[in-house]
Amino acid sequence: MSDFTLEPLFDYPQRQQVLDLAREHAEDVDHDKYSPFDTLRTLGSQGLLTLGRDGSLLPQVAVGFDLATECASTAFSLWAHRSTIAFFDALDLPLPDGLATGETTGTTAMAAAFKDSSGVGEIQVHATHVEGGLQLNGVISWASNLYPGGVVVLPVIVDDAAAGEPTKYIVQTRVDADGFNVKYQKGLLALDATESGFIKIENLFVPEADIMTRDVPGFLQKILAPFLLVQSSFCLGLGAAALNSAADHLDVAQGIFCDEFATIRAEYERLRTEITELAEHPQQVERRRVLQLRLDAAHLATAATRIELATVGGKAYKTNSPSARRLRESQFLPVQSPTEGHLRYELSHAQ
């Protein structure tokens, strides 16, 4: 047995409600019978989707962490939504109606922009100028929170840009806009309820007013910290829940896993300190530190869910057990953008 406890990253008045809501619906979310956004809208009505828009991001990071200790799918949906809010804030643009409360959902389709910036991928949505705006064609390989009426932020390559003009823009559109065609992906290991899918864009019109910025490098620099800090928070929360479960079974096999548990726990404590420090002053975050945090938090979640399986034993192998759910959720982290390969490439080239 261990004295490990699930301590909050930051305490806030609604914390118990956050935990209770996520726990109550975790199994139904996992079976795609309940939408994570039903929980998020409840939290949004209390201002819990817009914490840290100025100053410390730690309260928002703490909400993501707490959600993930009970349901990583809901925490993942929070991350994608909160990132969309951060995109508007980075450009000093007003939030679309309903985004602050979750009545309107937010989708980040920015993976291609980050990959293009790093040289590990390309933007696959092309734009040409037409009267009053842009016409878009192309594909987005993966995005989530794809609910009708939701706001989508994405990068485009402008094929007919004039000489000397930027050729990459960031634009916004809506999930149900004409020409925005979603093929929802189901049968996933986890996250089936997150409304994730592949998108084919055909002759989609984006008015001039929905071109958010033509300074893509500057935009990516501003959004990196909130994007990765909230993402790291749900990796860490998932790992914390697994360690909490494993801690109750360390007497298995005469305590053979105690030393390994202690090593993983020490890494968890280090990452708690790291994310807390970085989230307090997100505007000052060093790029390499936040990239490393995200990679390490994902590795922590993987290691923690593995030792949970090993210590809890056969009952953790049942598909409807919380242990099995956490194990499946952790397997998403190496492929979530930025993927493990992308992060490792970035870190190998970071100064």
Rank of each mutant, 00 (worst) to 15 (best):
E165V: 08
L191K: 10
A240R: 12
A253I: 12
A190G: 06
L271Y: 09
F76C: 04
A247F: 01
L327A: 07
S73L: 03
R214K: 13
A324V: 04
N244A: 13
H299L: 14
A298G: 15
Y184K: 15
T84K: 06
N137Y: 09
H299S: 12
V156W: 02
G341I: 00
E27P: 06
V158A: 07
L293M: 05
A100W: 02
F114Y: 10
V151L: 07
S141P: 04
D38T: 09
L6T: 03
K168M: 04
G313M: 08
G133K: 03
R294N: 09
V156I: 01
G150P: 06
G102V: 05
N244V: 02
A304V: 13
D178S: 14
H342E: 09
A298L: 11
V120S: 12
V153C: 14
L9A: 04
E308R: 08
P334R: 06
E7C: 07
T311L: 02
L51F: 03
G218S: 07
T105A: 10
Q292D: 11
V252Q: 03
L95S: 04
L204P: 03
T50E: 14
N203P: 14
K200W: 07
Q135A: 13
S2C: 11
A22N: 01
A350I: 14
V171Y: 00
S321L: 02
A109G: 03
D159H: 07
L146Y: 09
K200C: 07
K318L: 13
D159W: 10
F227T: 10
T39H: 00
S337K: 06
A75N: 05
A246I: 02
A26T: 01
I211D: 01
E195A: 15
T213H: 10
Q221D: 15
H126L: 10
T319Y: 11
L188R: 15
A177E: 13
G314L: 15
Q46S: 10
V182R: 02
S144W: 04
I223D: 01
S83E: 07
D38V: 09
T5L: 10
V153M: 09
T50V: 15
Y169T: 03
A22P: 04
S141T: 14
A316D: 00
V252E: 04
T319N: 12
T319W: 13
L134K: 00
V125T: 06
L291K: 06
P207R: 07
G164Q: 13
A161G: 09
S83D: 05
L136A: 07
T319F: 12
L9E: 01
D66P: 04
G138T: 07
